[in-house]
Design a protein around this nucleic acid. Structure first.
Lengths: 134, 134
DNA sequence: AGTGTAGTTTGACGATCGCCGTACTACTTC
DNA sequence: GAAGTAGTACGGCGATCGTCAAACTACACT
């Protein structure tokens, strides 16, 4: 049911941050103590969100939502990023017209040591086995 | 696989495994290659199923479904155990009237090294923080 | 001011989920 | 055989999920 979209790796252009931070909007993030394991696992159990998290894990810099070329609509993309933020997996911040995303790696590692790494490794292993096909 | 079940003279209560294996029914389990990370994560994202998996991880022997005193109905319990089996997290086998459950630890460790351990550790840590209250 | 870019909100849709009770099957024991 | 125990199958219910399109807001750059 996917529309259009050639799945391509998102290349990241921005190396500095030209925009400081958007003045108007603020995003709600759960505090570390409020991050729940079941919510994190649920968030990671969706292929699209896993794809986002894996991409974010490979990059050290922040990535805007639009560099992820997901085979879903923009509103669904917004939805997935929100799920990831609200369960504490990513941190989001507005910069100009873009919304930048970073993995909350340190927070997750502190809360659930080794979890993120083993999930990411598992995803890579599965992909290597041809796990991305039906 | 023969059923030499109690033909004559059961002079004492057998305390090892009294039942060999139920003859009639067979349960479908996914082969290792068919186990998908996203299904495992989804299975573990439910509190009841996580509770089952944690209990199973603590015990080395197989446990029947009925020893889990879950605050849900029997039919819902059946449902959760089936989800866990069908996604490859547990192995189930009939013994007499009971259905015994074991974690597929070796399979999961081989497929996704460290994943199960870090998830279990994360669950324990969260519980230690008082994460089991609402 | 006007145009463009990036992301949001809303409302809808079908699918799935977690849950239940009831009725059923499979096995054991009497 | 009959009774009992352990678990299943079958709807059904309300909630949530992933998805979309359309209309909207916020910011940047002419």
């Amino acid at each position: 049911m996917q529309t259009q979209t050639t799945p391509t790796a998102p290349q990241s252009k921005p190396q500095a941050s030209p925009q400081p931070q958007a003045p108007g909007r603020s995003l709600e993030h759960p505090r570390c103590e409020a991050i729940r394991l079941e919510d994190v696992l649920h968030a990671l159990s969706d292929p699209m969100r896993m794809r986002v998290v894996r991409t974010l894990a490979e990059e050290t810099c922040e990535l805007s939502c639009s560099v992820f070329d997901l085979p879903i609509s923009r509103s669904t993309t917004t939805h997935h990023f929100r799920v990831l933020r609200e369960c504490g997996v990513i941190h989001q911040i507005y910069r100009g017209t873009a919304k930048m995303n970073v993995l909350r790696r340190a927070d997750l590692d502190a809360l659930f040591p080794g979890l993120l790494d083993s999930v990411l490794a598992a995803a890579t292993l599965q992909e290597g086995r041809g796990g991305d096909r039906g």
